[in-house]
């Protein structure tokens, strides 16, 4: 009985205030799309980190014959120095952070460079111009700095480089994108709360007669307020559903079809990730509506 009554009231309220309800739907739709996009971007960042950091190595470049680096003023790295460096990595203080050490000779370095170079410029070099390299695989890629500090000062080391630096730029960009999306989402969510507040207020005012009578004959405060709260919640949830649909279409066509088609070697987020985000979006929508109800209803449906 009460449930049917409440549902009836919600339906009447939504129909009577259909334009306001629609605007609530649209604003929550846009704001939650931004929230979802931010979440998916972060998931993408995490996914890339997981995939790439496992593969990246720290490269310890050793001094070649005529290095321009000050720390190589002593000339090319000696075998003794190489052994000392290897000892630090494999037996020294950072050995527990190091997973594997691979020594690349001058000749191998040269071959690799030439192989990766399509312009042919590097083939003009001579293997003797280059230094050998220790490729170090870390047990925990995040611990790069510790390994770098332990090795960069050693004699015979020209430079320690982390391949992550290459990716970090991309991550910085993606993080910035996340912040922009989250910022826009915050503004839009504020707009959504204000709009839901207004909707509830209008609805409460237009049904003042009903609520006055309900109060008079002794219906409970929750029964008086529930229809208004639900009205906001229903509209906001509809917005969340649209946002989920939008994100789903976005990942389906933009990410899975278009991005995967153009840059295939990256592991992208997919539709299943949208489903991970979806319940949160609905929860946020309901939360926004609840927040709006909280600030409005006390004032407009007095008990």
């Amino acid at each position: 009985m009460r449930l049917r009554f409440i549902m009836g009231e919600v339906w009447t309220g939504l129909r009577r205030n259909s334009t306001m309800a629609l605007s609530v739907v649209l604003v929550t739709f846009v704001s939650l799309t931004f929230v979802g996009a931010a979440a998916l971007t972060q998931m993408q960042v995490q996914q890339l980190k997981d995939a790439w950091y496992g593969k990246v190595e720290v490269s310890i470049f050793l001094c070649p014959e005529n290095s321009l680096f000050e720390q190589c003023a002593g000339g090319a790295v000696t075998t003794v120095q190489e052994d000392e460096i290897r000892a630090v990595l494999e037996e020294g203080s950072v050995s527990d952070l190091v997973d594997e050490v691979y020594y690349e000779t001058r000749e191998e370095v040269f071959e690799n460079i030439v192989a990766a170079d399509s312009t042919g410029v590097y083939s003009q070099l001579d293997a003797a111009d280059l230094g050998p390299v220790f490729r170090v695989k870390l047990a925990d890629p995040e611990q790069f700095q510790v390994v770098a500090d332990a090795t960069s000062g050693l004699a015979g080391v020209e430079e320690v480089k982390d391949q992550r630096e290459v990716f970090d730029q991309l991550f910085t960009f993606l993080n910035a994108a996340t912040f922009v999306a989250a910022g826009l989402a915050a503004v839009m969510m504020l707009a959504a709360v204000l709009l839901i507040t207004t909707t509830i207020r209008l609805s409460a005012l237009s049904r003042r007669r009903e609520t006055t009578i309900m109060r008079m004959v002794g219906s409970s405060k929750s029964l008086i307020q529930m229809p208004f709260m639900l009205e906001g919640a229903v509209a906001a949830t509809a917005g969340a559903v649209l946002a989920i649909g939008g994100l789903w279409l976005g990942t389906r066509y933009l990410v899975e079809d278009w991005l995967t088609g153009s840059i295939a070697w990256v592991d992208y987020v997919g539709r299943e990730d949208v489903w991970t985000v979806a319940p949160w979006l609905v929860a946020i929508a309901v939360g926004l509506a609840a927040l709006a109800s909280l600030v409005t209803l006390g004032r407009y449906t007095r008990a």
């Binding site: 006055t212 008079m216 004959v217 002794g218 409970s220 008990a303």
Partner: peptide, 23 residues
């Protein structure tokens, strides 16, 4: 307490000059 007020009002019928019917 305010949450018991509805129970009080169920024991009081109220009639007003302006009828207050739902049109």
């Amino acid at each position: 307490s305010s949450w018991r007020v509805p129970h009080l009002r169920r024991e009081i019928g109220a009639v007003f000059q302006d009828f207050r019917l739902l049109p």
